[in-house]
């Protein structure tokens, strides 16, 4: 089946099998390997990307479902050669260790800040509770998202 999707601003057309999982389409067909696979049961969230701005687990979607939709993966966070606030914050606050959950965490954080520019610690912990991390204990992920929210607010008010 032919599909056309927009990923990180670029349009892609491909002929795919209906059973092709969206995550495999992103990783294999588009070569965007920053989106990862960590489980089979929609539990770990490392495959999360933004679909029309909303975080979705791409291991639990078929590529054909994404036909006509617009997605942002971790590779699309950097704009015009500038790291996004959330990318800066994760580096600054040691928000990652092995890096496997990081792309998803940053995307979920981005969507959260978009919706709630001043999230509390509980808001953040709740928002990322569909995404697992085995390294950090979440402490610095929460800190990073808090910091990115602050930077984003400052950027918006200046």
């Amino acid at each position: 089946m032919n599909i056309t999707v927009t990923v990180n601003g670029a349009e892609h057309t491909a002929d795919v099998e209906p059973r092709l999982l969206l995550v495999d389409f992103i990783r294999t067909n588009l070569g965007l390997t920053g989106t990862h696979i960590g489980c089979d049961t929609t539990s770990c969230g490392v495959c999360t990307v933004l679909v029309d701005g909303t975080p979705m687990k791409t291991c639990t979607m078929f590529a054909v479902q994404a036909n006509g939709r617009s997605m942002v993966t971790v590779e699309g966070l950097k704009q015009n050669g500038e790291l996004s606030a959330i990318q800066d914050a994760f580096r600054e606050h040691h928000g990652l260790q092995c890096g496997f959950c990081t792309p998803a965490m940053m995307l979920v954080g981005t969507a959260l800040i978009e919706e709630n520019p001043d999230p509390t610690e509980d808001d953040i912990r709740w928002a990322i509770s569909g995404n697992l991390c085995r390294c950090t204990g979440y402490v610095n992920i929460v800190k990073s998202i808090e910091a990115a929210a602050e930077t984003t607010r400052e950027g918006a008010s200046s």
Partner: peptide
């Protein structure tokens, strides 16, 4: 219900 990302779909 489920988790916040699953709830989006």
């Amino acid at each position: 219900i489920a988790d916040p990302i699953v709830r989006n779909l």
